[in-house]
Design a protein around this nucleic acid. Structure first.
Length: 212
DNA sequence: ATATCGATTATCT
DNA sequence: GATAATCGATATG
């Protein structure tokens, strides 16, 4: 069977070494990878199209800026683990820890493009998907994609995203990303100019401004 | 298309 | 007691 006839490609996990690097590099290389939720019912998969790097204690915008606390502990630990926080009394957001054990760093997942399990995601979001507009609103934005994947702090904070054991992981399906755009991060007041937001140029599921 | 605003709570000062 | 890595609704051009 020729490659072009293949509909579903197998997905391989990303190893610890992938995440144990500078968060800027991890952020850029995460674009085009696949977020997977499985283990209870239908498998959910979605392509990562927008992320932001958070540099740790020296980054005023990072939750790690005040130093180690119970909330941000995962970011100070080894790379490849889920840091989930709750914000504005309403939304969960998913990050993955990066860099060296003992040094805080993370990448925030801001938007994904749904691949499998769209009906399940819509149910989790409590919205109906009819046109392309609704589809974008399903997973474009950190709070939205977290809700679509049923991510909560109680359930997912501290989960090892390099392992399939807990049913939430990051994989590679062989997709070759196109052009990457870099802009300042969204929704922050401190260090607002730092160019640490990365997204796939032209992808409709990217949230916020789509120009550099 | 851009702007402004309210909701709602875990977390830290 | 103030703040926040957001979202959805409403208002206006």
């Amino acid at each position: 069977m020729r490659e072009s006839f293949q509909v579903k490609r197998s997905i391989s996990t990303l190893g610890r070494e992938f995440f144990a690097r500078n968060p800027r590099k991890v952020a850029r290389d995460l674009l085009g990878r696949v977020l997977v939720r499985e283990g209870s019912g239908v498998r959910l998969t979605a392509r990562v199209v927008e992320v932001e790097a958070y540099l740790g204690e020296d980054d005023p915008a990072s939750h790690a800026a005040p130093g180690l606390t119970p909330r941000n502990a995962v970011m100070f630990g080894p790379a490849g683990f889920a840091y989930v926080y709750f914000i504005y009394g309403a939304h969960y957001c998913l990050n993955v820890s990066c860099g060296r054990d003992g040094v805080a760093a993370a990448v925030l997942f801001r938007a994904v493009e749904p691949l499998e399990g769209i009906e399940e995601m819509a149910r989790a979001r409590a919205i109906e998907v009819h046109g392309p507009r609704d589809l974008v609103r399903l997973t474009a934005g950190p709070g939205r994609m977290a809700e679509a994947f049923g991510i909560t702090r109680a359930r997912d904070n501290g989960v090892d995203l390099t392992s399939r054991k807990r049913g939430l992981w990051i994989g590679d399906d062989g997709f070759r990303r196109g052009k990457v755009m870099v802009t300042p991060r969204i929704g922050i007041n401190k260090a607002a100019e730092w160019p640490l937001r990365y997204f796939l140029a032209g992808n409709p599921f990217v949230s916020g401004r789509k120009m550099a």
